[in-house]
């Protein structure tokens, strides 16, 4: 009924968090550059947290967008107030909230868990030694 709203709410929080983390990383980077102007800066072998969070945000935004379309298709979301047809009836509203608490939360958890696994794998891949061009071609 409105399960995609849970993912949308998570997407908003993650997007804001990613922006804050990115600003923090940029200020830390400039501080490092000032301190170690002469010494070589160690290359990080991991994706920055801001990028990791943006991947999660895009997954959630993308999924929520297409699920919103599905709800429009089924007539559960309408372009006029209150936008959710379930809001017109208290019984439907209770059912909608129950659905958000069960299916909506499960959807958000699945996306977040898959993203967490993806990021662990991505860090492992990035820490692998670089392949030689000849070996990579073979």
């Amino acid at each position: 009924m409105a399960c995609f709203l849970v993912s949308t709410a998570e997407a908003i929080v993650v997007t804001v968090a990613a922006k804050i983390v990115k600003n923090k990383e940029m200020s830390e980077e400039s501080l490092k550059l000032e301190k170690n102007a002469e010494t070589e800066i160690k290359q990080e072998k991991k994706l920055p947290w801001s990028k990791k969070l943006m991947i999660l945000a895009y997954l959630l935004w993308g999924g929520a967008f297409l699920l919103c379309y599905e709800h429009i298709w089924h007539g559960e979301v309408v372009p006029w107030f209150p936008f959710l047809t379930a809001m017109n009836d208290p019984g439907d509203t209770a059912e909608m909230l129950h659905e958000m608490g069960t299916i909506g939360v499960t959807m958000a958890v699945i996306v977040t868990v898959v993203w967490a696994v993806m990021m662990i794998v991505a860090d492992k891949i990035m820490s692998r030694p670089e392949k030689e061009p000849e070996k990579a071609a073979a």
Partner: peptide, 17 residues
């Protein structure tokens, strides 16, 4: 990629229920 995987994972949750 992100768009379709995001939606697929969410529909997977729906399918489980």
């Amino acid at each position: 990629c992100i768009l379709f995987w995001g939606a697929s994972l969410m529909w997977l949750g729906d399918a489980i229920f």
